[in-house]
């Protein structure tokens, strides 16, 4: 048997689909991209640009198609579907990676205990109606005991015992509890996010908060006349150091007394710097405040009406 003909035919077939280049082409099948890293052939580029571009493109696409057709395929209605590998080229993302969703308290617990969660169907089978009904919501299955026409009453029930109202109350309580837990989970997640986002070390913010708390505590202690001597002590509370009641001597020299009193007077005379910037006109009188006071908060227009006074209603005095 002579196979040389078959071999020759096969070779001819291969020739049509095989591309030979100095540098093998780089194929990124995930992005359907082929990169031809061979340097440009300047001569043919200058000779006939369009023809050169078409030929290089054909060679490149032939290589890409060859690698695409080698991929594992699954048949479908519209023809074979090739399964693509993950792309090798790194492209920047358009948005940051999604943050992991914070676990709810139950999810945390379930995770530590290894409890796996199976999602409930929204519909349940109703034997009576012989149909699927919603588990909750409008005509939901959770309201069955509230709407049924006959309900068994416990033996020792009151005269005015209302089973449907009882069931409704229980359901509303469950709803309220669920809502409360949901809000708590939200708050917990927000707190966690806040502490995480406050630039790197969570510890620094904690330290800062502690310092502020200590400061406030110290202020409250020295705010009583007895310097917190009779305050209730907390467990583990440290004794505040360096705080002592201080009494001015009853007798001082006249010059010291004079200087003290002058200092107080000068303080009274001076307008606080913050107010100075704000108040517009008169230094002595804050007009805005005076009007508000005189008109009992009704404003200048009301004051003018009252004093210029035609009748008006019987004003409240």
């Amino acid at each position: 048997m002579d196979v040389s003909d078959i071999l020759a035919a096969h070779e001819a077939k291969q020739k049509a689909i095989v591309v030979e280049k100095d540098i093998p082409l780089e194929v990124d099948a995930g992005f359907l991209t082929v990169t031809d890293l061979n340097p440009i052939d300047v001569e043919s580029y200058n000779e006939d640009l369009e023809d050169y571009l078409l030929n290089t493109a054909r060679d490149g696409v032939q290589t890409l198609i060859a690698s695409l057709f080698q991929l594992p395929v699954t048949p479908s209605e519209d023809g074979p579907v090739a399964k693509l590998p993950a792309p090798t080229t790194l492209l920047p993302r358009a948005k940051p990676l999604p943050k992991p969703k914070p676990l709810t308290k139950w999810e945390q617990f379930a995770k530590t205990k290894g409890i796996s969660h199976s999602k409930k169907d929204k519909k349940v089978w109703d034997e009576e109606k012989q149909d699927w009904v919603d588990r909750w919501g409008w005509k939901g299955a959770n309201k069955a005991t509230e709407v049924q026409w006959l309900t068994e009453v416990p033996k020792n029930a009151d005269v005015d015992f209302d089973p449907s109202a009882q069931a409704r109350k229980a359901r509303k309580e469950r709803m309220a509890k669920n809502e409360k837990q949901y809000q708590q989970n939200l708050a917990r997640a927000q707190q966690a996010a806040g502490s995480a986002s406050s630039s790197t070390p969570n510890a620094t913010s904690n330290v800062q908060r502690k310092r502020e708390l200590d400061k406030t505590l110290a202020t409250t202690r020295i705010s009583t006349a007895s310097m917190g001597k009779f305050d209730k002590k907390l467990d583990g509370e440290k004794k505040l150091r360096g705080v002592k009641r201080k009494f001015e001597p009853a007798e001082v020299s006249s010059s010291t007394e004079k200087s003290h009193n002058l200092a107080i007077l000068s303080k009274l005379d001076r307008e606080p710097s913050a107010k100075k910037a704000k108040s517009g006109g008169d230094d002595v009188l804050n007009v805005r405040k005076a009007v508000r006071f005189a008109s009992k908060g009704k404003g200048s227009a009301a004051l003018a009406r009252q004093s210029g006074g035609g009748k008006g209603k019987k004003g409240k005095r």
Binding site: I40, Y45, A57, D78, A82, K83
Partner: peptide, 20 residues
């Protein structure tokens, strides 16, 4: 990023060539 492609749906190519 796509995980699969219908081979019949390949219809065109965009070729980008940098000159010398």
């Amino acid at each position: 990023i796509i995980d699969s492609i219908c081979l019949k749906g390949i219809e065109y190519v965009i070729s980008i060539t940098a000159g010398p």
